[in-house]
Design a binder for these strands. Sequence first.
DNA 1: TTCATTTGACCGAG
DNA 2: CTCGGTCAAATGAA
Length: 296
Amino acid sequence: MNMNSHHEKAVQAIMYGHSCAMRLKLRLDDPMADGGPVSSYDLAKSIVDCFSNAISILTDKPKSEDDQFSDLSSSPPPPPPPPPQESHSKKKRKIDITTNPSEYWRDDSPDPIYYDGYLWRKYGQKCIKKSNQQRSYYRCSYNKDHNCEARKHEQKIKDNPPVYRTTYFGHHTCNINHNQDGSFTAVLDPVDDLKSANMIRFGNDLDYVKKSHSTGLSLSVKHEEDLIREKTVDQYREITGDDQDCQHVMEEDLSSSPSGSYPPPSSSSDSDCIAFMSDMLFEDLDSWDQFDFGMH
DNA sequence: TTCATTTGACCGAG
DNA sequence: CTCGGTCAAATGAA
C-alpha cells in the first residue's frame, strides 16, 4: 500500500467522522427532532472511531511493501471472535443465527462500514425479498492464502435515517505476522490477548483492542495503540489542564456497548472513556471539529 | 496483465 | 416452488 492510499484512508475516516459530527450537531441543535434509531452515544462513538483511525493512519511510519497486514495495525477493531467453526462444505453453508447466536456478530451503523480493519472481497450481492434491500456478501481477502473462513454480509435495513447492518460470520485465521518488522510472529492466544487488551485503552480504540482479542492482534499493533493513547492524554491535558483525571479516565475499567449491536463477550467496558470523549463533543462540538490532532 | 467487483446461474433448505 | 448463499464468468479499473 502506498502513501496515497494511506492518505485516502485517512481522508475517508475524517470525512466519515465529520458526517457523524454533523448529525450529532443537528441532534444537539434540535433535541426534540426524531433522530432515528442511532443514539447520540453511537454517533459520538463513531466520531471518536473515525478520528482515531485517521490519527493512526497518519502517524503510521512508512512501511515495507508487505504492509497489507501492517495496514491492519492502524485499523479499527476486528470483529469479536465467534468460536472456531468446523470446516464447511464447498457449497452452501447456512448459519442459523436464531439458534446459533454465538456464531455470528453484527453491527448496525448509519453508514456502510467500508473500513473495519480487515480486507474483504465481495463475492456476491442479492436483493433480499423480505426487506426489499440489497445485501452484499464479503469474505476475507485471505480466504485462499490463509484458508481464512471469515465472512460478512452488509445490508441496508432502514432508509430514513439509513441504518446498515453488517453481520460477521466465522473468525479470521489469516491473522499472522501483522507486524512490520518481523520481531513478533506468533499469534496471540485469545485469552492472553484479552488480558493484555484490558491494559490498553484509548477512546474507541479500546474497542478495537477489546474486539481484537480473538484475532491475534500483534504486539506492534498494541504499541501503536499505546502511542495513540499517549497522544490523547496530551490532548486531554491541553483541553482540561487536568493531569490526574486523564490517567484515571484512560485506565479505569470501562463498560460496554451501544444498543443495536452485539458486543463481544468482553469483561471490560468503555463507557467512562467514551463518556469523556463524548463530553468533549457535547461541550464544544465546534472546537472539537477544529481540534488540532497534530496532523499538519 | 492482474486483480477486484458485478451479476446471473446454480444449489440446498424449507 | 421460493429464498438466500455461493460460484464463477464477464467486466472494469489500475
